[in-house]
Amino acid sequence: MHTVWKGAISFGLVHVPVKMYTATEDKDIHFRSLHKDCGMPINYAKTCRHCEKEVGPDDIVKGFEYEKGKFVIVKEEELEAIKPESAKTIQILDFVDLPDIDPIYFQKAYYLSPDMAGAGAYSLLLEAIKQSGKIGIAKISIRSKSSLAAIRFVDNCLCLETMFFPDEIRSISQVPNLPEQTVVNEKELAMAKTLVEQLSEKFDPSKYTDDYRIALTELIEQKIAGESIDIVTAPDTEGRSNVIDLMAALQASLDATKAPPAPAAPKRKRTTKKKQDHVS
């Protein structure tokens, strides 16, 4: 794993040297933009519209647009001078209960490992969090971005989750068309709650997969192998009525949860191109 941050956690007078590693990875399939005529990748050069020429890294500075077309220049040494203490230290401010934090605050997960001779202090903090059932709320700066953070444990590892600050969360009042109060049919509600109960089980992340990424990977592999596939068009849903019979839909959903699982759908038909032998 690549170290993305190095510093220390402090809580009270305890100092825990740590290294930080990204806990998740991007599995998305990324495409390059190619020139249609020759198939070569397209380069995206940084150019100045005024000077009409390409600009190198040494000629680029940071600017904040405070009015349309007006910028204030901020130098790298000025940014360095105002870096907060959290650029080097993860200072735990409070310990709270995890259920008290709405998931909307969470951003990205990182693993923390002990650094240098910090194994003893690391184990102390890990065990204190485990046995107290609390998580630490701290501040951290990563790559010039300051964030709140939640420090918890995963098995025998401290895990840090970066969080949004409260003023970064948009107000619910900005969401259009929300009902002022919920009015539901009691029979429909009872059936909906029954459906929720029948679909409830212990969370098992291994049962969830990215079906689109799997299909896209399969498509790319077939193209690399020189295979062709039959494209199946999804059925048109435009003609469906928008009027929903909730009771009927709920009953059908309940019946489906009781029915045995349906057989797996057949795989897409593959047609392999046969290579012709050339006779010399």
Rank of each mutant, 00 (worst) to 15 (best):
T3Y: 02
V4M: 10
A8Y: 09
F11Q: 03
L13A: 12
V16H: 05
T24L: 08
E25N: 12
E25C: 14
D26Y: 06
D28A: 14
D28G: 15
H35I: 00
D37P: 09
P41T: 14
I42M: 12
C48P: 11
H50Y: 08
C51M: 06
E54K: 11
E54Q: 13
D58L: 04
D58G: 13
D59T: 01
D59A: 14
V61K: 09
F64R: 02
E65S: 08
E67I: 02
K75V: 00
K75T: 00
K75G: 05
E77M: 06
A81H: 08
A81D: 10
S86R: 03
T89F: 02
L93R: 14
D94M: 00
V96I: 15
L98V: 06
I101M: 11
P103L: 02
P103Q: 02
I104W: 03
F106T: 07
Y110S: 07
L112F: 07
P114A: 14
P114E: 04
M116N: 09
A117H: 11
A119Q: 13
A119R: 14
A121E: 10
A121I: 02
Y122Q: 01
Y122W: 06
Q131A: 05
K134H: 09
G136P: 05
A138D: 07
A138E: 05
I140R: 01
S141A: 10
I142T: 01
S144H: 08
S146V: 07
S147Y: 05
A149K: 01
A150P: 01
C157A: 13
C157L: 11
E161F: 02
M163I: 01
I169R: 10
S171N: 15
S171L: 10
S173E: 12
S173V: 08
V175E: 08
P176M: 00
P176R: 06
N177V: 00
N177T: 00
L178I: 01
V184D: 09
E186G: 00
K187L: 13
K187I: 13
L189H: 13
L189G: 04
A192R: 11
E197M: 09
Q198L: 12
S200H: 04
D204A: 13
D210C: 03
D210F: 03
A215F: 08
I220A: 12
I224V: 15
I224S: 10
G226V: 09
G226T: 00
E227Q: 08
I231M: 06
V232F: 01
V232N: 10
P235A: 09
T237G: 01
R240I: 02
V243Q: 11
I244V: 15
I244L: 13
I244G: 05
D245E: 10
L246Y: 15
M247S: 14
A248H: 08
Q251I: 04
Q251M: 10
Q251T: 15
A256W: 06
T257S: 13
K258C: 00
A259F: 09
A262D: 11
K267R: 10
K267H: 03
S280D: 14
